[in-house]
Design a protein around this nucleic acid. Sequence first.
DNA 1: CAAGTTTTGAGGTGCGCACCTCAAAATTCG
DNA 2: CGAATTTTGAGGTGCGCACCTCAAAACTTG
Lengths: 343, 343
Amino acid sequence: MRPTTKDLAEAAGVSLATVDRVLNERPNVSNKVTLKVTEAIERIGFVRNPAAVALARNKTYRFRFVLPTSGDQYLAELIARVSEAREALRADATEVEIAQIAMSDPHQIAKYLTGIDHDAMDGVAVMAPESPQVRDALLRLVERGVKAVQFLSGQERLENADYVGVDNFAAGATAGKIVGSFTGGRPGKIMIVAETMMALDSIQRRLGFDSIINARFPHLESLPSLETYGDEKRADLIIQRTLQHNPDTVAVYVLSSEARVPLTAVWNTQGARALTVVAHERTPFSEQALMDERIDAVIAQDPGHAVRSALRIMRARSDHREPLASQERIRIEVLLKENLQFE
Amino acid sequence: MRPTTKDLAEAAGVSLATVDRVLNERPNVSNKVTLKVTEAIERIGFVRNPAAVALARNKTYRFRFVLPTSGDQYLAELIARVSEAREALRADATEVEIAQIAMSDPHQIAKYLTGIDHDAMDGVAVMAPESPQVRDALLRLVERGVKAVQFLSGQERLENADYVGVDNFAAGATAGKIVGSFTGGRPGKIMIVAETMMALDSIQRRLGFDSIINARFPHLESLPSLETYGDEKRADLIIQRTLQHNPDTVAVYVLSSEARVPLTAVWNTQGARALTVVAHERTPFSEQALMDERIDAVIAQDPGHAVRSALRIMRARSDHREPLASQERIRIEVLLKENLQFE
DNA sequence: CAAGTTTTGAGGTGCGCACCTCAAAATTCG
DNA sequence: CGAATTTTGAGGTGCGCACCTCAAAACTTG
C-alpha cells in the first residue's frame, strides 16, 4: 500500500500537523524536524496524492491566452486548439480564456497586460511582438505572481518567464536546407517574402536561412526580403516586379505564417514555371498547396502541441513544480506532401 | 460555483443515490429517471470532478510495456522514456512496468501474453512482430478486459485495440521524397537495407518508398532490399558486394531502426563518395551522423511522445473515456542537421 | 388483489489531504 | 529564574465522489 501522510508522520516520529507544516511550507517549524520529515519522505518513498491535494485545495486555475486580433489562418487554428483544450480542462478545475487584442500599438498591449487582475489569474500566455513596454508589463505581471509564457512570439526571452515555440534561427536554417537541397544544384536566386521584417522571429528565420544558403549552397543567392505589410495589392506589385527583374529565380521562401497572399501573387505571375516553394505553418491553405504540389515543404510548429505545452507549463509553475523539459520542446516539423497526416 | 452531484440530484429531482446509479451505470434504474438525470447534466453543465473520483475510487492503474529483449539504440531510448513516464506517473497512482521478452518465437510471445493476470493489469502496450499467435493472444487479453495498444510495431491492426505509431507506408514515402529530392536529379541506384523484410513495417516502408521513387523520380532505381539479419559480418559482405556491383549508387536508405551496422559497412567500403543517406529513428548514432553530415535525413517517430500517448490511451480506455485523437497522432518527423534540437 | 420484483431514497463511510484552532511542550531571553 | 516566544501535537472539518446497506415506494404478474 502506498504511504499516506499518516504513515509519513509515524515514520518521521512527528504529528500529522507537523507533516502538514513541512509539506506545505508553513512557518514555525524547526530545522531539526524539517530534516526528520524530509528524511522520512525519502526513506518510505512518500509521494503526495495529487487527487487528494486537488480535492482538498479545491482551487480552480485560471489561465489566459493573449493573442492578436488580426487573423491569418494559423491564428484561427491556434484559437481552435485553445478552445479544444478549454473543453478538455473544464473537468480539471481549469478555466482557459482567450483574449484578442490589437498588436499594432505596444502601449495598448502593455496597458492590457497591466490591467489583468493578478489575484484572479494564475497564468498568461502572451503572443505579441517585441517591445520594451510589453516586456516591462509582462515582468510586472510575473512579479505579482502571475506565471507568464512567451507564446510563439518574436520576443526577447525573459529570465522569469517560460518560452513556448521553436528556435526561429533553426527553423530558418531548416528551410534553407530544404530549399538548397530541393533545387538540385541549379544556380539562381531565392525570393524571400515576409509580412514585415520588424518582427524578431522573421529576422531570426532570415538569418538562419541565409547562414545555410551561404555556407552550403553558394550557387544560390537570397534576394532582399520583400515586405507585404499584409497588403494584397502591394504584394502583387512587388512580387511581380521582383520576378521579372530576376528571371533566374529558382525558389521562393515565405517567412511569415500567412503564405496565401504572397504565394497567390507568385503563382499569378509565374504560371507553371518550376519553383521550389517553402513556407511556414500548417494551415488549410498550405495543406492544400502541399497536396497540389505547389508548395514543396512547410516548416511548422504544431499549434495543438504549443497550446497544451503552455498550459502544462503554467499549471506546473502554479503548483511550484518544474515542467518536464523534454516533453515541452516544440519540434521544428518538416511537412511534405508525403508526411501530411489527416484525421 | 461549479455544480456537484448534490446540485445535480436537486436539479434532476432525484436522490443522490440515483445520481450515483446513473453516473456509474449501476443496474436497476428506469429509463425515465436516467433521462431526467442526463437532461439535468446538460442543463446545469455538470462535470464530474476527476480528482474526487480518483480519490474515492482509490484505484491504482497498472500498465505494462511488452518490448523486445534484443536491443538497438532506439529500444534503449524507448525504455528510457518509459522509465521517465513511470516516475512521473508514480504520483498519479499509476504503475508502469516494462517486460522484455524474446521476439524470435511467436509462441513464446503469445504464451507470455496469455500468462498475464488480467485482474492485476489494466493495459498492455505490445511491440511485437506480426504473427497469428500473438494476434490471438492479444485478442484474448482484450476480451478479458485488458486494454491493449499495438505499439510501434508491424502488426496487422486489430479492431479492438488501439494503435500507436506512424503510418509506415507514409514514412517510407517521405523517405523516398527526401532521397529523390536530395539527389538533385542525378540518375542512379538506391541501395536499400533492412534488418529483415519479414516485418510488416519494413515491407510497408519499402512499398511507400518505391511508390514515390517510381512515380516521381523515374531516373532512380531502387535495388532489391538487402537483409542483414543483424549480423555485422553478413552486412559488411552483402553491402560491399552490392556497392561494387552498382558503382552508380547515389543513395542509401536504411529501413530499420538500427542503422549503425549497415551504415558503418557502407562508409567502410564507400570512403568519401557522396551518397545521399536516409535512415529511420533518432538515436545517439543517427544524431551524431546527422551532425557529421554523413546522414542527410532521419525519418523519426518520437519515442517519448509514443510512450506518453500509449499511456494516455490506456488510461482513457480504463476510464471508459475516448482518447483525444488529435493529440495521439504520432507524427512522421523529418530530422535534418538543422532542426535537430537537444535539451 | 396479494405476492413478488424492480426502482428509488435516505443515510452513512472513507478516500488523502489542506487548513484551522487551541493547548501543551520546548526553547529563548531578559 | 520566570516570562515571553517559538515549536509541536491533538483533533476536527470539508473537499466531491464512490460504494454500501436497508427500507420504502413503485411497478409487475398471476
